[in-house]
Every structure is written in C-alpha cells, then in structure tokens.
Nucleic acid binder design. Sequence first.
DNA 1: ACTCTTTATTTGTATATACAAATATTTATG
DNA 2: CATAAATATTTGTATATACAAATAAAGAGT
Lengths: 141, 141
Amino acid sequence: MNCDQSTYCKCLYYAANALSRNITKIAEDSFASVDLAPSYAFIVMTVNKNPGVNAGELAKIMMLKPSTITRLVEKLEKSSLIKRFHEGKQVLIFPTKTSMELDSKIKEAWAGMYNKYVDLLGKEFADKLTQDVFKAANLLE
Amino acid sequence: MNCDQSTYCKCLYYAANALSRNITKIAEDSFASVDLAPSYAFIVMTVNKNPGVNAGELAKIMMLKPSTITRLVEKLEKSSLIKRFHEGKQVLIFPTKTSMELDSKIKEAWAGMYNKYVDLLGKEFADKLTQDVFKAANLLE
DNA sequence: ACTCTTTATTTGTATATACAAATATTTATG
DNA sequence: CATAAATATTTGTATATACAAATAAAGAGT
C-alpha cells in the first residue's frame, strides 16, 4: 500500500496489526508442514524445552493471558502433544513422546519461517526490527 | 519480560504479535470514550473522510480482507454509523449524521492513543518504529 | 445475444485471543 | 485453628479476523 491515507502510516496500532497479520500468515504457512498453528507450535517447543513448566509461567513466556493458555493447551492435550498434571493449585505441563518426536520438524519449520521473512525484509532490517518490536512490546505491556 | 527464552526475542512472529496485542489494548482503552473498538473507529474515520468509498477500497486502505470489511461494516450500519448503497456489483459506503457528529471525538480519542504510546516509548522511538513496522508490513504483504 | 471469465461482495464456518466470573488451593491473620 | 486474602487455573462468553465457497454483476470473445 502507498501512504495516501497518510494518517494511518503514522499510527502504531494500525501498523502493528498489519504486520502481525502478515507475519502470522507467513508463520502459518511454515508451520503447516507440522500441521500446527504457530501458537501451538510455540507452546510445543517451549514445553519440550521446559518439561514441567506451569501454565502461568507459560503464559508469561508466551506473553499470552492464562485463559488463552488453558485454551491452547487443552487442544494440544487432545492431540497428545502435551500432558497436564495438577499439582496443588498449579498445572504442570509436560511433553509427550509425540511432541518430542516432532521437535526437530517444528524447529525446521521455524527456521523456514525465519528464512522466509528474512528473504523479504533483508537480514539486517529483519533482525533490527524484531529487536525494536520486542522492546516496544515490553514497554507497552 | 526478560530475554531468557532467547529464541523468542529473535522471532518476528512472536514479537509482532505481542506488540499487536499490547498496542491494541491501549487503542481499545482510548476508543472506549467513543464506545467503539479501534477497527470500527478507523472505519468511521476513513468513511467520514472518503464518503462513498467502496468496500474493496476500504479493505485495501485498512489492510483487511473484504470479508472482514463486510462484517465490520454491517455492524456499523446497525449502529447507524455508516450507510451502504449498492451500485452495480460495488457497495458504496457513506457517513451518517451520527458518524459525522462523532468525528471530532474519535479524532480526540485517536490523539489520546498516540499520546499514550508516545509517553511509554518516547516520541522518537515511537515514530521510527511505526515507520519501520509499516514498511515491514508492506514488504511481507 | 450468449457463454466465459473476471471482479466485488457476502455467507458459512473456524480460530486465536481476551475479559470477567467461577473454582480451587495456598498463605496469612486474628 | 478458622476465616480472610492471595494466587493459579478454568469456564462462559464475546470479538476480530480470515478462508473457502456462494452469489451477483460486468466485460470479453465469438
């Protein structure tokens, strides 16, 4: 798009949502190879790396709300990609055989996504942008 | 959040979505004063500025899919904030008395949102980031 | 004028995400 | 110890957004 609607180009809400939709599309295409939506793939990776992580920690790591984690995790459990165990008031989340077998394929898909957007943005710009966007997300939290 | 999950900090998908959620929250708070979710407020502003814009153009301007525009616009029509007229295969969208009366309040809310995130990010960073994010969104389209 | 293709919009359906309220457990206080 | 407060998770409900298929209108080629 060009910048005719000049006001919008100056609005972070507008720009950030457009970016989010477009990068999500790229991520979805990449993770299609493991038949997972990106958020689910991220959770599987995180749980594989941190077996026994609890739901609240997972929410913080993923920057999602606890209720969202519940929703995502209950679907992953149905597909046997994680297991949940109640421990007191906490819920601990563990990988499964399936999820661990899938791990390297997920990481490949992840690398594929990275290569795709680096290809479109250029490595330098992509890396700097990611850093800045991440910084902004934290400042606005 | 800190950068313990170092991998995520390097992922544009992750960062962009986090930013999108956080800035959307700020936008929702600002536009609450006019009782509109941000996307609706943007459409009203755009239609007020471009009376008779058609749905497809609106989709392009907003960087949303036509089906999404249909959905948003049909709700706005129910609240009498736009009117639709069929002209051949196109649908032309017009402001209403109500939407025009609301225009300055929406713009105030918009300015409030801008001030809020500039306050949190600093003006220089905010403006540069918006520009970069917008550029990236276009490159990834 | 009639079919074929292209363009514009809508509809049916699905998904990620969130908020507010509910539930369950732990900790603190009187 | 018993009740109150705090913490962790889930549930009910709502929303924005998209895709794929359906519809409708316009244009092109014969």
